[in-house]
Simulated assay, not measured.
Amino acid sequence: MGGVQHSKLMDSSAVSGLSFLEEGQFSKVYKGYMTTSKVPVSIKVPKVPDFLRKDKKEVKNHIEEAKKLLNSQIRKAQGENIVRCLNVAYDDFRKEIWVVREYVDGTDLETVMKNPSLCPSLLSPEEKMRVAVGIAKGMSYLHGLRYPVVHGDFKPSDILLTAKTKVPRLTNFGLWDFKKYFVEETLPADVVFLNIHQAPEVIFPK
């Protein structure tokens, strides 16, 4: 999983033992471990079309977009109800950006909503309220930052529930810098966004 370090980006070789977790329309998610500390992390890899991978200018632009995320307050954000973004890496071999985040052992709220038997304790009104309050706290934290972060594509799949305590953790915020690669370049030509504020996310940077 080696790669060449670009400026302040983390070397992708700092993460090892990748295993596939899931795939969405715009990205793939893996579980891995920090090579030195063995701490588990999740790696979100935005899908980049082949023609962009082969274009040196676009690859350079891709790296610059990653630096914006790396240097933004997204990396500084931390709290009980959000999933921390730990670092950003560039894998030179695959021409991929890796968003390295803390790993949350559990499942997402959408999965639980579709199959309540996975977590019967959340069926009680008290537990539903506890989760709702936790989600509100996560949003309040992001909106209360000096430069507020707005999650432009908030949905149940973006809420992770920890395995033991079922604490809600908000994820997938702060990816606006990848909009060109994450959305525009990966959609068919006949697909048009009706809402300019649609996915993935929006950040008002420093």
Rank of each mutant, 00 (worst) to 15 (best):
M1P: 10
K95Q: 15
N172T: 13
F182K: 00
F193V: 10
R101G: 12
G138H: 08
T36W: 11
Y181E: 03
L118Q: 15
S37W: 03
Q198M: 11
F154G: 03
D11Q: 12
V4A: 15
K180R: 14
G3Q: 02
E22L: 10
S140P: 05
G152L: 08
Y33C: 09
F178Q: 04
K206D: 01
V15K: 02
V99E: 01
G2R: 09
R169I: 13
F20M: 09
T162D: 15
K128P: 02
L86Q: 02
T107C: 12
Q5Y: 05
K8D: 11
V112C: 04
I203C: 00
E110R: 15
W98E: 02
P148M: 08
P40W: 02
K95C: 07
Y147R: 06
S72M: 00
E64R: 11
I135N: 02
G32N: 03
W176N: 03
E22N: 12
D105N: 12
L160I: 02
P120W: 11
S117V: 12
M129N: 11
G152N: 11
V15P: 01
K128Q: 12
K28H: 08
V59R: 12
S27A: 15
T171L: 14
E185I: 07
P46W: 01
S13K: 06
D105A: 13
K166S: 13
I135E: 02
L194D: 15
E184I: 13
N61P: 06
S72Q: 00
F178K: 02
R53L: 05
Y33I: 08
K67F: 09
K31Q: 10
S124P: 04
F173E: 02
V88M: 03
K137F: 15
L109H: 03
T111N: 15
K31N: 06
L161D: 01
V150F: 09
R101H: 13
M113A: 13
M113R: 07
S140L: 11
D55G: 01
K28L: 09
K95P: 04
D158R: 13
G17S: 14
L122C: 11
G24T: 14
I97W: 01
L109K: 00
K54Q: 06
F173L: 06
M129C: 10
D91L: 05
N71A: 00
E64G: 06
K128C: 09
C85S: 05
R84L: 04
T186S: 11
Q5T: 09
K180I: 07
A189L: 12
A89M: 04
H143M: 10
V83R: 03
T35E: 07
S121V: 14
P120M: 09
K56W: 06
L161I: 12
E96D: 14
I97P: 00
L69H: 01
L69M: 10
T162C: 15
K8G: 08
F20E: 10
M1L: 14
G174N: 00
S16D: 13
G79I: 03
K155T: 05
T111F: 13
E185W: 05
V15A: 10
V48Y: 02
Y103C: 08
G138N: 09
H151M: 07
S27F: 07
A199M: 11
D108F: 04
I203T: 00
N172A: 13
K164H: 14
K95I: 04
E58W: 11
F20Q: 12
I82A: 00
